[in-house]
Design a protein around this nucleic acid. Structure first.
Ligand code: MN
Ligand code: MN
Ligand code: ZN
Ligand code: ZN
Lengths: 150, 150
DNA sequence: ACCGCAATTGATAATCATTCTCGAATAGTA
DNA sequence: TACTATTCGAGAATGATTATCAATTGCGGT
């Protein structure tokens, strides 16, 4: 069995686990998010699905992403510099370090970061569900590039 | 001197400090963000400026906010449930706890949170400028409200 | 205090991301 | 296989944001 089929099955299983009705469009979209490290935009997702031989409309991409967000399977990451939302599979909590120069998004998996949720709960009395942390800076590659130009 | 004039002067000083050309519109917008705890939307800012007897257009509100963001004086907080961006004066770093039920935004000033930036820098080699943390949950008031309904 | 000019404002139009509509297609169930 | 609620999708509608550009204004230099 080829890799592509495996990830589709993994996505189908995840949909079943969350009692979300299984459709080809949802399988492809979810499998893309589960396996890529792209943090893709709507447009990238749309092109990916069609590029893999599945029919899909933009409306369906939007609907599917909202559904996955509501089920806490994915998150929306605030706008890249072009003003587009990015999407990310988020079953394993992590945070994002974003290069303001080249828009690269780096994952950081770090347990310490989850402690912040407990603090927030203690400070405010909120019942906390989840949280999102984004760090802005310049990536090592862009640091070199910018240093040379100067 | 009345309070309103004081905050306008404070805003004017801040603009000068950041070498941003001083205009009435910018003074009012910045003073609103500096003094309110509203985390207002574009529309709220627009109405505030006109409500205080100043002329302003939506384009100017957008332009001014982008300018203040570029100068790291304010931040944009990801969409409330109505899909509107919120804006916040951000000279003193803090993070936000957001009620998913009533959209209330609570500030938390906590030094420990800034430590996350150092960690991110160590983990990734990025040169970090700033960061934003948002926690989602249900506020104490909505917890009561929801418990009664059930 | 006045000039000169680059920067800003603002009414409006244009753009573009997102949501809505509703008939057709489909998944899940028995 | 047949039934039915759900989902899909093409295109229209919406609505937030951005672009335009002529008129106005802030401000450094004189
Ligand atoms: Mn990620
Ligand atoms: Mn705040
Ligand atoms: Zn970079
Ligand atoms: Zn609440």
């Amino acid at each position: 069995m080829v890799q592509e089929q495996k990830t589709l099955l993994a996505a189908a299983d995840k949909l079943k686990e969350y009692k979300i009705k299984n459709t080809p469009q949802r399988q492809v979209i979810l499998s893309y998010l589960m396996t890529s490290h792209d943090h893709p935009s709507i447009e990238m997702i749309f092109n990916y699905v069609r590029g893999n031989g599945f029919s899909v409309s933009l409306a369906t991409v939007y609907n599917t992403l909202q559904l996955l967000i509501d089920n806490n399977l994915i998150i929306e990451i605030a706008a890249d510099s072009g003003g587009h939302m990015r999407y990310d599979y988020f079953e394993i909590p992590h945070y994002h370090v974003i290069c303001v120069n080249c828009n690269k998004i780096v994952d950081v998996f770090d347990d310490k970061y989850k402690k912040n949720e407990e603090n927030a709960q203690l400070e405010t009395g909120f019942q906390v569900f989840n949280s999102q942390y984004e760090v802005y800076g310049v990536c090592p590659e862009c640091q070199k590039k910018l240093a040379q130009e100067a």
